[in-house]
Design a protein around this nucleic acid. Structure first.
Lengths: 335, 335
DNA sequence: CTGAAAGCGCTAACAT
DNA sequence: ATGTTAGCGCTTTCAG
C-alpha cells in the first residue's frame, strides 16, 4: 500500500525536457516558453503530479505549515477560533498542526518541541500562563491574549478590560449591587484584565467589591458550580456574579438551579465568550460576545504577514477587537 | 527573525566526527561505540539540536504526520474524537493536521489534495457521503463510520444499529407508542444504520413506524428545531422522537419549549452521542452514549498500525464499540 | 567502529 | 529558453 508518488523528474522524462524546466513552469517562474509551459502543465496534470512539500520545505525553508497550541478544543471558545484559523490557513494553502496542551505546561513544552522538528513556519499559541518561557522561541509567534511577559510578541485579542467594564456596568444597570466575580485560574492574564475593567465600572459607579468575593475557579462547568457553591455558602448577600467565561457561567446557573436560587430575580449571572450553548432557550445566559471566528482568521493572517515579512519593518502589532454585550435572560434588565 | 537551526553537521564538526556517526548515534542504530554515542548525545543536547523532520521524511518516506478531515470541530462529537486522536498521536511523536470540510465535498477534495502535498503518512476521515471517491486514495485511511462503499477500508465506529435498537427499545419501554425519527441528512450512513436498528426494535415489539414520520434534518440545533416543527405541525399524535444526534435533540427540546409541549410527559426525546452539554441540569437529555475519546484513540492507533504494517497481513479491520443508553430527564421511565 | 558518498524531490544559481 | 549542477538535512549503503 505504498503510495507511489510521481516526481518532477518523471514528468520531465515523459516530455524529454530537463526537470528544472518543469520546476520553473509549475512554479510560474519566467524562463520557459509558453508552449512548453503548456505542455508541462498538461502532462503534470495527466500524470497526477503533486509537489512534495517536504522537499520544497527543505530547500525553501518554508513548510507551508503552522502550529496551533491551545489548551482544550472542546471549549467552544477555542473551537471557533480554530475554525477561523484553519479556514484562513487553507485559503493560503497552509495546513495547521493542532496541538492540545490540556492546560499543562509540560505538554505545552512537548508540543513546542514536536512542532520545531516539523519546521513549522509559525505558531499560534494560547499561553497557559507560566512566565518568560517564550523568550527563546525564534519563530514567528502569535499570542491569543498576551500577558505582560509577552511584550514584543504579536497578539490578537478582544479588549478584555473593556469587556469586564461593560459586563459589570450592565449588572449595575440592572440594579444588582452585591457582586461576586469568578476568575479562571488557568488564564490569569485575561482574568486580570477583565477584573480590572470590572473594578473600574464599580468605581465609576461609586461602589467597590470585597476581595473575599473574588474567587478563583476552573474554566469549566464544574469549576463554576464549585465556585458558586463557595460564594453562596459564604455570603448570602451576593446578588450577581460575573463569570470569566461561559463555561463557568453555566456552572453557576447549575448551582443556582440545584440550590433553588432564582435567576435573574434573586441573582443575576453574566458570562464571557458567548459560546453557542449559552444561547439555548433553556439557558439564555447573558454574556459578553467575542468574535471568535474573526479572531481566528485575524490570528492566522497576522501570523502569515509576520512569516512573509522576513526582516522589514517588524513593528509589533497588537490587534484588539471590541467585545459586545449580549443581553439574555440571566440578568433582569435590558440595557 | 529567521530561526537558525543547527544541523547534524554542526554537531559532527564540533566533535570532529563524521556526520553519519552522529546520525547513527542519535537514532540509536548500532555501529557506534558507547563512548562516542555518549559524547554525541551530550553535544547534541547542549547545542540544542533538533532533527529536521522534513529532511527525515524526504529520505524515509515517513513524515510523522497524519491528516484528520472532519466536517465541523464545533460539534462536540468531533471535538472529543479529535482530542483522542491528537492525544494518541502525540504519544507516538506524531503531529496531526486538522482539516475542516464543513460538510462540503469540494472542500473535502481540497483538503485531500493539500494533505497529499504534505505527504502525510495516513488520513483519518469522516466521509461526507458522496460515494466512491476514495477508491484511488492510496495512503492508509481510517474511516469514522464507514459506508458500504468503503468496503475494503478500515474503520472504527460505534455499533450504530445496536444504538438505534437500544434507543427505540427504551422509548417503547417508557410507554411511548407514536414515534418519529429525525435523520441527519449530512450523514446518511450512520443515520441509516441507526434507523435500521430502530425498526428492528419496533418490529420485536410488534410495532411499526410510518414513513412520513421519518424526516430528514440537519445535524444542528436549528436543524432539529425545524424538523420538530415539521413533525408536530403534521402529526399531533407523535409522543416521542428519536434524534440522530444530540444537536438535533437539543433543537427538538427547543421547539417543545417554544410550543409549550411538556417533556417528557407529553413527548419523550432521545438523542445520540452524549455530548457534554446534553448533561446540563437545564437540559438533561436522554441519549445514547458514544465513547468518543476512546474512538479517537483507537482511530489513531489503528491507523498507525496500518502505516507500520507495510505489506504484511493487511487484513481489513473494522473496529466496533458498543454505545450505551444514558437515561436522563427527557424520557419518562428508568429502564 | 567509523568515514565517504549517493540520493530522497526540489529550487536556484550558473552555463549554454 | 533550456539544461546542468550544487545543495537543503538527513539516512543508508559501501569501503576502509
Amino acid at each position: 500500500m505504498i503510495p507511489i508518488s510521481i516526481t518532477i523528474k518523471d514528468v520531465a522524462k515523459e516530455l524529454g525536457v530537463s526537470y528544472s524546466s518543469v520546476s520553473r513552469a509549475l512554479n510560474g517562474k519566467e524562463g520557459v516558453s509558453e508552449v512548453t509551459r503548456q505542455k508541462i502543465a498538461e502532462a503534470a496534470k495527466n500524470m497526477g503530479y503533486q509537489p512534495n512539500d517536504l522537499a520544497r520545505g527543505l530547500v525553501n525553508k518554508i513548510s507551508k505549515t503552522v502550529g496551533v497550541i491551545i489548551p482544550d478544543i472542546n471549549n467552544p471558545f477555542f473551537g471557533e477560533i480554530v475554525t477561523g484559523i484553519v479556514e484562513a490557513a487553507n485559503e493560503n494553502e497552509y495546513n495547521v498542526f493542532l496541538c492540545i496542551s490540556n492546560w499543562d505546561p509540560d505538554q505545552e513544552k512537548e508540543n513546542f518541541s514536536l512542532l520545531k522538528k516539523k519546521r513549522v513556519d509559525g505558531i499560534i499559541l494560547k499561553s497557559i500562563g507560566e512566565n518568560g518561557r517564550y523568550r527563546d522561541i525564534r519563530s514567528p509567534l502569535m499570542i491569543i491574549e498576551s500577558d505582560n511577559d509577552m511584550e514584543g510578541r504579536q497578539s490578537v485579542e478582544v479588549d478584555n478590560e473593556l469587556g469586564g467594564y461593560l459586563a459589570v456596568q450592565h449588572l449595575l444597570n440592572c440594579g444588582y449591587r452585591n457582586l461576586a466575580v469568578i476568575l479562571g485560574k488557568e488564564d490569569m492574564f485575561a482574568s486580570t484584565r477583565r477584573l480590572k475593567g470590572a473594578k473600574r465600572a464599580l468605581n465609576v459607579f461609586g461602589a467597590t467589591i470585597e476581595e473575599e468575593n473574588i474567587i478563583l475557579g476552573n474554566f469549566s462547568i464544574e469549576g463554576g458550580r464549585v465556585a458558586a457553591k463557595q460564594i453562596f455558602k459564604k455570603n448570602r448577600q451576593i446578588d450577581a456574579v460575573f463569570a470569566m467565561n461561559d463555561l463557568i457561567g453555566l456552572g453557576v446557573l447549575q448551582y443556582c438551579n440545584e440550590a433553588g436560587i432564582r435567576v435573574p430575580e434573586e441573582v443575576g449571572v453574566i458570562g464571557f465568550d458567548n459560546i453557542s450553548y449559552a444561547g439555548l432557550p433553556q439557558i439564555e445566559l447573558t454574556t459578553m460576545h467575542q468574535p471568535k471566528h474573526e479572531l481566528g482568521r485575524l490570528l492566522f493572517e497576522a501570523l502569515l504577514e509576520e512569516i512573509q515579512e522576513k526582516e522589514s519593518t517588524q513593528q509589533i502589532k497588537k490587534i484588539s477587537l471590541n467585545p459586545e454585550l449580549k443581553i439574555r435572560k440571566t440578568t433582569k434588565c435590558e440595557k
